[in-house]
Design a protein around this nucleic acid. Sequence first.
DNA 1: CATGAATGAGCATTCATTCAT
DNA 2: GATGAATGAATGCTCATTCAT
Lengths: 209, 209, 209, 209
Amino acid sequence: MPKQKKQLSTDHQALVDKGVVNAPDSAKGRLLQAAATLFKEKGYERTTVRDLGKAVGIQSGSLFHHYPNKEAILRAVMEETIILNTELMKAALAQTNKPEDKILALIRCELESVLGETGAAMTVLVYEWRSLKEESQLEILKLRDIYENLWIGTLIEAKEAGSVVIDPAVLRRLLTGALSWTVNWYRKEGDLTVEQLAQMALSLAIKPN
Amino acid sequence: MPKQKKQLSTDHQALVDKGVVNAPDSAKGRLLQAAATLFKEKGYERTTVRDLGKAVGIQSGSLFHHYPNKEAILRAVMEETIILNTELMKAALAQTNKPEDKILALIRCELESVLGETGAAMTVLVYEWRSLKEESQLEILKLRDIYENLWIGTLIEAKEAGSVVIDPAVLRRLLTGALSWTVNWYRKEGDLTVEQLAQMALSLAIKPN
Amino acid sequence: MPKQKKQLSTDHQALVDKGVVNAPDSAKGRLLQAAATLFKEKGYERTTVRDLGKAVGIQSGSLFHHYPNKEAILRAVMEETIILNTELMKAALAQTNKPEDKILALIRCELESVLGETGAAMTVLVYEWRSLKEESQLEILKLRDIYENLWIGTLIEAKEAGSVVIDPAVLRRLLTGALSWTVNWYRKEGDLTVEQLAQMALSLAIKPN
Amino acid sequence: MPKQKKQLSTDHQALVDKGVVNAPDSAKGRLLQAAATLFKEKGYERTTVRDLGKAVGIQSGSLFHHYPNKEAILRAVMEETIILNTELMKAALAQTNKPEDKILALIRCELESVLGETGAAMTVLVYEWRSLKEESQLEILKLRDIYENLWIGTLIEAKEAGSVVIDPAVLRRLLTGALSWTVNWYRKEGDLTVEQLAQMALSLAIKPN
DNA sequence: CATGAATGAGCATTCATTCAT
DNA sequence: GATGAATGAATGCTCATTCAT
């Protein structure tokens, strides 16, 4: 398959090259994409391994050559999306300077991750948490912490600069809820652009100077 | 049973008396409470009717004397909590006048519903939506609309009064996410009181005059 | 309930008076009638005690004040209908003399029992035999033998008189099948009267002199 | 498996080769045979899928790899037996000429189907009709019509030839009952051969010339 | 006698997982 | 790697029967 259907972002391609995440057009990559979509739509429990097999064109039994069990597929979906979005966020932060710009970049990134390509996987991350066994939860939590530290660091900077007034930890949590919930109501076809939405979210988070 | 274990709020008791919701110490009421807790902790799919039976001290088969099937239990959990919280919110609104006070009252109510007694049921309402069959979803949606109209009406008032600057519909949705997400991080035992949290949420929502 | 909806035949009333069968308008009688109808329509296994209760306007639990278990109801349906039809047949035989007339009387009686008032019960007798426990089967078999002896005796007479040519035992069995099967195709509303049908059946059974 | 346990008739084997019916020694074939036997002995409702599984040496859950549900097994039992017996009857008719011989051939075939290898399945066809859902009933009815038309056509011929005197439709129905009922009393071990029985049945049906 | 809540064993069906081919 | 038949434990639900009221 020499031709790629869709051009990956430079950062995404770099992660594929490093072997950190699966190429979206590889067998595993397509499985994870299909799993994310099905898990989002029907829920993890209601999605059968037969559903997963059918979605990628193999028998359900063959899935177990790629992943040892169904839960491992859920975990991989979550891991890959956190890793990818952490990297995308790092790249976005690297191109900004002022605290307010940084916060806007983070909001944009998070909205993009929730409402764009990785949206299904991000939704799964939020809604199917309980379906992971504890051990897997701890593993994901480590990755989540790296991601969250990018946020917290930025908000603390902004607090020191005076553009954030409330406790950064609380603010981050309120924003987490506000932004992740968009998956339940935001429609790309509507009047509101993601950029406008990002600006609105920013206006809640900071006190204009 | 002349003594009640726990004193219900006046509004709650009134709903029980009207037969709108089940008394929390009745057989059905205890079932719904247990169901909410289990559904929140393990998820609807992973909660078996045997789990439910055990939680209220009856055989699983006996559940079907009270509800025709498992989904009906989920639906009842959702319906009762919406109805109850709508009434509590109406009562709270009735005691305020200024738009800002009204918004604070709504935030308080919603936080209380998410973090207090009905917290488990509210979480179920958010996380188990997909497990309802479409027919039930429509039924709950009607109740949800009544609830949401209390919010939207108040935010529109506030916009006209100048204390809200962004589109009320978008603001409500951002707040919905921010407030419902608190269930995932807020701990009553911590330093932050619900009242403080409500104030912080209010500070995001409105522009101080 | 001083007025009877339907006048019973003299023979039927006599059996009621003797306490051999239940009066059709008594509580037990109505239950048996309803049971026969339901067992015929849905089958014994698919008929629940709740169905039976609803059909006579009581709770399913109350049935067990009248009969010790569901199977006893089935057995009573069968017993009463055999006893009743045996008596009706005896009465019919008593009014005939010639072997051919006797056979016609028996055919008429059997068709009437299958296609008339007791039709549901007779069908149950044929189709739900396996649902009886062995002990009950033996009990019914005794009653069945009395009934069958009326037939066999008459056919032997006819054989001796020359109007029947094949073995009476085999003939009776072929007739049993032919007549009981009518429940599956004969319609009172159609062109064929029961009397015509009886004549046709007779024409198969005997060799005209 | 180069050796067959039992030699199939040429006609039966031809149907297996065409894929119309399952080979009796295939997995599905053995299941259907076992199902017919159990359904006949205990009734469809009283036969559990565990019974069926045990009878063919697999777990009950594995049945659902072959048939989507229990009712489909019942339906397959009925369908296969009608198809098979229709073909056997066609073959028998093809070897006869005179109306009386044809009727005897039909009677022989039907007795053989009821009392021979497919006897259990034929009994199920008669006794478990109500356990099919309406849709399946209609499907079987189509097959039944093909079978019945062989009978009716032959009886009409015979009526025209003068050897049948009563209405062919009524005669067929009386014969259906008489012949299918044999399953309830005829024993191969007894004195009466199937051939003798067939001759007796023929003597009822026709008026000797 | 009647009620109706509760029982508890049993049912058909589902489904992640295994494994011989 | 892939297949697909088989497993076996678990699931939601049914239902005849019991029994305190």
